[in-house]
Design a protein around this nucleic acid. Structure first.
Lengths: 219, 219
DNA sequence: GTCTATACGTTGATAGAC
DNA sequence: GTCTATCAACGTATAGAC
């Protein structure tokens, strides 16, 4: 009995791989748009397919099902989400670190408003798709982050505020500019939030929050 | 040819009216639950009907169509929404007025988390159903509200912060506790936000925001 | 006023030709 | 790998019996 040896195939960049990459990218992009606007249940695969310029059967080829696609989009977002927050360290000067964090979070809201909105919709909807993300590890990670603020408090660098609620203040006040951009534009009569608008907003937040914690804004 | 005269019917409280009131209430209640969880597109009339304990044809009897029901729910919410904000007056002591407003807004978030979430979802989705609400009048109203803060600034009562962004800070930081309650519970390991949690949060916000505006919290 | 039965489009998903 | 054709389930909405 003999075994066939596979014929030699010269190593070329598989065209399939490039098409896959391009299509997956187009699908994720289109899916972000739709999920940000209508949430998970409110979004249809058909609409995503149309927006991506592909037959809808292809979506099921690349992403087994609708939930798979949604989780892929969410994961894409979560990866970016916490990195800025992780940059905060107990050794930092609180004023510099907080000002930097607020600017970074606002810049993230400006550049990825859809990511912020998908996350917001998922949380508002109960966050069941993020149950893996919200694990015991996540709680430990959060405790560690809050400990940074507690250290600043214990060493008298900032006012004895509640570290946990300070974090929610930072998150809520910055994400508001991505999630509620529609309302902000309506009340201010703007068509969109410019980079300058976001810098004004950042400066305002930095002034109030830092001073509110007993700090003087840097520079 | 004779015309029949309708037989006399003694005036009794129409059972129809009471049934209508009871059913409409049950439908709106169920609709709030579903819209808060899945947004407009993601909610089905069938699910609302099941939750309300009524055949789904009844929903179309009481509320012409799905959009009509949604708008009814939204209007219910909007009515409550701005009243607390209207209470702020240029003549008030800023510290007292701001502290009172923050507490009122947080209490609203605690008692009507679903209302806040439906509003949030609608805004994130583009707010097209609120185009009537976001009229020229609304912009004028908002300007008038911002003028209160500007007056406090001009008379040297609070720091020269940006009044418009201060409003967004107040809105964002308080609504966060309704809209992101799921995330807050997950990271803090709680099953729900208690009244005490919300009071702690209020006190923290009052400390930071008032001090950040150059004010001393009252009492 | 109320509810059963049903019309008819859209949904997520798949089978199978190319 | 890709796409056309199709399915069963579910969507909103209504007609008409009670």
């Amino acid at each position: 009995m003999t075994f066939e040896v596979p014929a030699h195939r010269p190593h070329v960049a598989k065209p399939a791989g490039r098409i896959r990459q391009k299509n997956e990218q187009a699908i994720i992009q289109a899916a972000e748009d739709e999920f940000a606007r209508h949430g998970f249940k409110g979004t249809s695969m058909n609409t995503i397919a149309l927006k991506a310029g592909l037959p809808k059967a292809n979506l099921h080829y690349y992403f087994t099902n609708k939930l798979g696609l949604y989780v892929a989009v969410l994961s894409n977002i979560i990866e970016l989400w916490d990195s800025t927050f992780n940059a905060l360290s107990a050794d930092d000067d609180p004023a510099v670190a907080l000002a930097h964090y607020i600017r970074a979070k606002m810049e993230f809201s400006r550049r990825n408003p859809q990511a912020s909105r998908i996350f917001a919709m998922e949380i508002i909807s109960g966050g069941h798709c993020l149950s893996d993300y919200f694990s015991q590890d996540y709680r430990e990670w959060f405790k560690g982050r809050a400990a940074v603020f507690q250290h600043w408090i214990d060493s008298g660098k900032i006012d004895p505020v509640d570290p946990v609620h300070l974090i929610f203040l930072l998150w809520g006040s910055t994400q508001h500019y991505a999630d509620f951009a529609t309302q902000i534009c309506q009340v201010t009569g703007r068509s969109r939030l410019t980079k300058q608008d976001m810098e004004d907003a950042s400066n305002n937040l930095i002034h109030i929050i830092l001073k509110g914690c007993g700090l003087t804004p840097p520079n």
